[in-house]
Simulated assay, not measured.
Amino acid sequence: MKKIIISILSLQLLSCSTTAVIKTDNSTEKFAKTNPENIKVYSSEKINEKYIIIGEVVSNVDANKSSEKAIKELKKGASTIGADAISNLKLEIGIAHGFWTANSIKATGTAIKYIK
Rank of each mutant, 00 (worst) to 15 (best):
M1T: 15
M1A: 08
K3D: 06
K3Q: 15
K3H: 12
K3L: 14
I4Q: 12
I4G: 02
I4S: 14
I5S: 12
I6E: 03
S7T: 06
I8L: 15
I8C: 12
L9I: 13
L9C: 09
L11W: 03
L11F: 13
Q12V: 05
Q12S: 11
L13W: 02
L14N: 02
L14M: 13
L14F: 10
S15N: 07
C16P: 01
S17W: 02
T18Q: 03
T18D: 01
T19P: 01
T19M: 07
T19I: 11
T19L: 06
I22D: 10
K23E: 14
D25S: 13
D25N: 12
N26S: 09
T28P: 10
T28D: 15
K30I: 15
A32H: 05
K33H: 13
K33T: 14
K33D: 11
T34D: 05
N35C: 02
P36G: 09
E37V: 03
E37R: 15
E37H: 14
N38A: 10
I39D: 08
I39L: 12
I39S: 04
K40L: 13
V41N: 04
Y42R: 05
S43P: 06
S43D: 12
E45A: 01
E45V: 02
K46A: 00
K46Q: 00
K46E: 00
I47N: 01
I47F: 00
I47Y: 00
N48G: 05
N48C: 02
N48F: 04
K50I: 00
K50Q: 08
I52F: 01
I52A: 02
I52S: 10
I52C: 03
I52L: 10
I52R: 12
I53V: 15
I53E: 15
G55M: 15
G55D: 10
E56F: 13
V57W: 10
V58M: 01
V58A: 11
D62Y: 07
D62N: 12
D62A: 11
A63Q: 11
K65V: 06
K65F: 14
S67I: 04
S67R: 07
S67L: 05
E68P: 00
E68M: 06
A70Q: 06
I71L: 10
L74K: 07
K75S: 13
K76R: 14
K76N: 15
K76L: 15
G77A: 05
A78N: 11
A78C: 11
S79G: 11
S79Y: 14
S79Q: 09
T80M: 10
I81A: 09
A83E: 06
D84H: 08
D84S: 04
S87K: 08
L89P: 01
L89S: 03
K90M: 06
K90I: 12
L91W: 07
L91M: 02
E92M: 10
I93F: 11
G94Q: 01
I95F: 00
I95D: 03
I95N: 00
A96S: 06
A96Q: 03
G98P: 01
G98K: 04
G98H: 03
F99V: 03
W100D: 05
W100E: 05
N103I: 02
N103V: 03
N103P: 09
I105C: 03
K106M: 07
K106P: 02
K106Y: 07
K106R: 14
A107S: 04
G109R: 08
G109K: 04
A111E: 04
K113S: 11
I115F: 03
I115S: 11
I115W: 02
K116H: 11
K116Y: 07
